[in-house]
């Protein structure tokens, strides 16, 4: 009898096939979804990205940030600044926003990492507030009332409105696939093993030679860069940004946290489930306004108390399912 380590299970093999089929269908979205459908899908993609990144931070690296809106807004503002003030093509601004956010994330981490656990959460929030108030002071970007992307720049992106919308849709889809792909790659790399160890037991991980600080820093910078790219895309679609919208704790952190908690923290699949539940709830309850948000908050609290691994964790515990082959497991092979 021999043993080997594998990640694949039967459900994960089926999962890969299903994911491939779904991707083809989504790529053809502009031909079946319609204008509103495409807008909804873009929103779903961006929330999936934001939730997956927050999940990586909080669920794996133990960095419970309540300040990721700092990087959403930063990404948006970099897009508007580069496009309107420097004439950079909007789509090129997206990767540039990622690079700039990664650079900005270094000093942010240097300061906020001095706070532990829950205090890190509030510290990250303060940083986001500094960004919001800081950008409110920049007159060239409209100060507190924000700025719009000039029509000439918008029209320069594609031949007509339909073509532009298709282009933004595909960029959004491409960005989502790329970022989720990077997360998968990260979780399967040596950092992934360190992160899983970290998630399960930080003290044990530390004593087993995992460089905890370095791993956390890498994850934080990676999440900042990707969050900023998602932010650029969000505001490229909205064509308008204000400090309050860009750095909104409710839109870019509260909802993202609820999605992740409901779907399942510390599970790659969690945010997928969470996004589906979130959009279903929103489409049925959004008429209720603020009551809808109270319901969402209450569901998140309930899940945190009763099923802390979220809906996906709840299902997976009972069925041992995983969609993507991410978990390493030891398999005994009889001879």
């Amino acid at each position: 009898m021999t043993a080997s380590v594998t990640r694949a299970t039967r459900t994960s093999t089926i999962g890969v096939v299903v994911v491939a089929i779904a991707l083809v269908a989504l790529a053809l979205g502009p031909y079946w979804a319609g204008r509103d459908g495409m807008r909804l899908l873009i929103e779903a993609y961006t929330y999936l990205v934001l939730a997956s990144l927050w999940n990586l931070l909080a669920g794996y690296a133990g960095l419970v940030s309540v300040g990721q809106q700092a990087f959403v807004g930063l990404g948006g503002y970099v897009l508007f600044a580069l496009a309107t003030l420097a004439g950079v093509p909007p789509l090129l601004c997206i990767p540039l926003a990622g690079i700039i956010a990664a650079i900005v994330a270094i000093p942010v981490a240097a300061i906020t990492f001095r706070l532990r656990g829950a205090y890190f959460a509030i510290g990250s929030w303060v940083v986001a507030e500094v960004f919001r108030l800081g950008f409110s002071q920049v007159a060239a970007l409209g100060g507190g009332s924000g700025t719009s992307l000039p029509a000439a720049i918008v029209q320069g992106m594609a031949a007509n409105r339909t073509a532009r919308e298709h282009l933004v849709y595909w960029v959004a889809l491409g960005l989502m696939v790329a970022i989720l792909g990077l997360i998968v790659a990260l979780l399967r790399s040596r950092y992934g093993l360190a992160l899983t160890a970290l998630r399960d037991n930080e003290v044990a991980a530390r004593s087993n030679g995992v460089d905890v600080e370095r791993t956390k820093l890498v994850v934080f910078i990676f999440a900042a860069a990707c969050t900023a790219m998602a932010g650029s895309l969000i505001f490229l679609q909205k064509l308008r940004i204000t400090p309050d919208a860009g750095f909104s704790v409710n839109d870019w952190t509260a909802l993202v946290i609820f999605i992740t908690v409901i779907g399942g923290i510390g599970r790659f699949e969690g945010p997928f489930v969470g996004v589906v539940v979130f959009f279903l709830l929103r489409e049925t309850l959004s008429d209720l306004g603020s009551i809808y948000l109270m319901i969402l908050g209450a569901i998140a609290i309930l899940i945190m108390l009763k099923a802390p691994r979220g809906l996906w964790g709840f299902l997976a515990e009972r069925t041992d399912a995983q969609v993507l082959p991410l978990q390493r497991r030891v398999v005994a092979r009889g001879k």
Partner: peptide, 23 residues
Amino acid sequence: DDILPPLLVTFGLSVILQNGLLE
């Protein structure tokens, strides 16, 4: 020992309180 539950539950409570007062 886990910091996530208290943090996320009070965060949810914060959102509930804000929106409840708004209502």
